[in-house]
Amino acid sequence: MTALLEVRHATRIFDGLVAVDDVSFTLAPGEILGLIGPNGAGKTTLISLISGTLAPSEGEILFQDEVINRLPAFRRARLGIGRTFQIMRPFPGLSVLDNVAVGALFGRDGGQAKLAKAREQARVSLEFVGLGKDIDKRADELGGPGRKRLELAKALAMQPKVLLCDEVMAGLNHVEIEEVIEIIRKVRDQGISILVIEHVIKAIKSLSDRLLVLHHGEKIADGTPEAVLANPIVIEAYLGKKRA
């Protein structure tokens, strides 16, 4: 089976600083790929290159075998690439339901033209992430964990083929993390491929089919979670600091 998403030699330079350095990888249909690395390793930049909010300085990004790195962000969303933001960005003045309805109104293939149907679809996404009872709140009335789920629901309402999750578990407690892991597994069971950035190693190890490690913008490991986490280079670069 060919890859759904392929990143080839992606590089991004900010003011002379290399944030992402010649990174290549693939994401297969239905796969959950974990992306880990110390702070500042370039994880969020990499996601932004894929979702189109940043343009790669060099390299290519392919989605369903088409080069997409010249497409603006909204076109990529319409192809079926959904993302969440690490710094949560709900539409604060809108209700929780309408926040998610935006995803349904736009999203993959241009989404749903009718507001009533979009709201219906939004309600389903909100139920799915466990925010069913908060739909009438204003988005800025939700607490941190609620906003994480809202980010997920917004992206899911787009009916994406690929979901890029930027630290959807940060700041959550154990129970909440378990719940989010469960949600992500259920998303994958619908056939959606997932790229997930996470700091909680235990969570990502149990969730991911494969792990990718970035360090100073470079890919230093790619493989099964067990193999990657046993890799001395990874331990040195990433886990080593935590042990000390």
Binding site: T53, P72, A73, F74, R83, R89, F106, G110, M158
Partner: peptide, 8 residues
């Protein structure tokens, strides 16, 4: 930016 990545 949030609007753009949702397909607007």
């Amino acid at each position: 930016e949030g609007a753009a990545v949702m397909g607007v």
